[in-house]
């Protein structure tokens, strides 16, 4: 299968994430759209690792394994990011009793 199909799938997923993050005001849904963008990048990394393996797998049997390990580390970082981000959202809800991101404009004034 040509690799463009996965490139275009990842682009579509990433742009859905961007459009969602721009058009919603609920902080949790914005956060979920960011997760969609991260997953689009993960999908593309795995697709490229399989492409690289097909081209260089004959000479180097472990060609392309780095891409899948990067995806593993991105998942680790994403899990840490979600725990801290949700803690920040809970703290914000406790302070202003809303998770509307338009309340977060104090740095503007």
């Amino acid at each position: 299968m040509p690799v463009e199909r996965y490139i275009f799938l990842a682009i579509a997923l990433f742009c859905i994430g961007i459009a969602g993050a721009l058009m919603r005001r609920n902080a949790i849904i914005v956060f979920m759209c960011i997760e969609i963008m991260l997953n689009a990048v993960n999908l593309l990394l795995v697709a490229f690792s399989k492409m690289h393996h097909l081209q260089h797998g004959a000479t180097n049997p472990s060609a392309g394994i780095d891409g899948q390990l990067f995806v593993f580390f991105i998942m680790v970082v994403a899990a840490a990011e979600v725990s801290v981000g949700l803690a920040i959202i809970v703290m914000m809800y406790r302070n202003v009793h809303s998770i509307d991101i338009n309340f977060l404009n104090r740095l503007k004034h």
Binding site: M1, P2, V3, E4, Y6, I7, F8, I11, A47, F48, S49, K50, M51, H53, L54, Q55, G57, S62, A63, G64, I65, Q68
Partner: peptide, 18 residues
């Protein structure tokens, strides 16, 4: 990306053990 360098390159599906 339509005409990028990778255009038309094949990738492995359902095989490969990496």
């Amino acid at each position: 990306l339509k005409d990028a360098e990778t255009a038309g390159k094949e990738m492995q599906l359902y095989t490969g053990d990496i």
